[in-house]
């Protein structure tokens, strides 16, 4: 990297890196819609496409935190709209527990988010990502799971 680039990097404000697990049938398409409609949202998220929110093993979320992602978003179809009928309802119970336990051991509640967004909700998707980025940014980098040795 040349010197000018390094300097301009230092000048830049810190931006969080957020991993987003998006259901193929709704939120992924929602994100796509936000894109093709040219709705602006911060470039903080990296998307992982999953077949259903029910596919998300809570370990995905924890492993993301271990690997140093500053925030995690999980988004699926609204209740009743799941392609596999109840995948998101099963997932919702799981997520409730993941969220409570993360809070309980002292992971800031604003690092991990769960939401619903349909394929038509490109606008909503962008709004949520903007909000999440703000929240995670306020928390600063995720260092809790950093290894000391």
């Amino acid at each position: 990297m040349n010197k000018a680039v390094v300097e301009s990097k230092q000048d830049e404000e810190w931006q969080p890196k957020i991993i987003a697990f998006l259901c193929n049938w709704c939120s992924y398409a929602g994100a796509d819609l936000a894109g093709v409609s040219r709705i602006q949202y911060p470039p903080t998220i990296r998307v992982v496409r999953v077949p259903c929110s029910g596919r998300i093993n809570p370990f995905f979320i924890i492993k993301s935190l271990i690997d140093g992602w500053d925030g995690v978003v999980v988004s699926g179809c609204h209740p009743g709209d799941c392609h596999y009928i109840s995948g998101n309802l099963v997932a919702r119970r799981r997520f409730a527990i993941v969220k409570e336990l993360l809070d309980f051991i002292g992971i800031e509640p604003d690092r991990v988010h769960f939401m619903w967004a349909s394929a038509a909700e490109g606008e909503l998707f962008a709004v949520m990502i903007r909000k999440i980025s703000e929240l995670v940014k306020k928390l600063g980098p995720n260092k809790k799971f950093e290894k000391k040795w």
Binding site: P79, G80, L89, R92, R93, F95, A96, K99, E100, H113, F114, M115, W116, M128, K131, I132
Partner: peptide, 10 residues
């Protein structure tokens, strides 16, 4: 259940 609480969601 369909009506499970979503209080933890954004």
């Amino acid at each position: 259940k369909m009506e499970d609480s979503e209080d933890f969601m954004l």
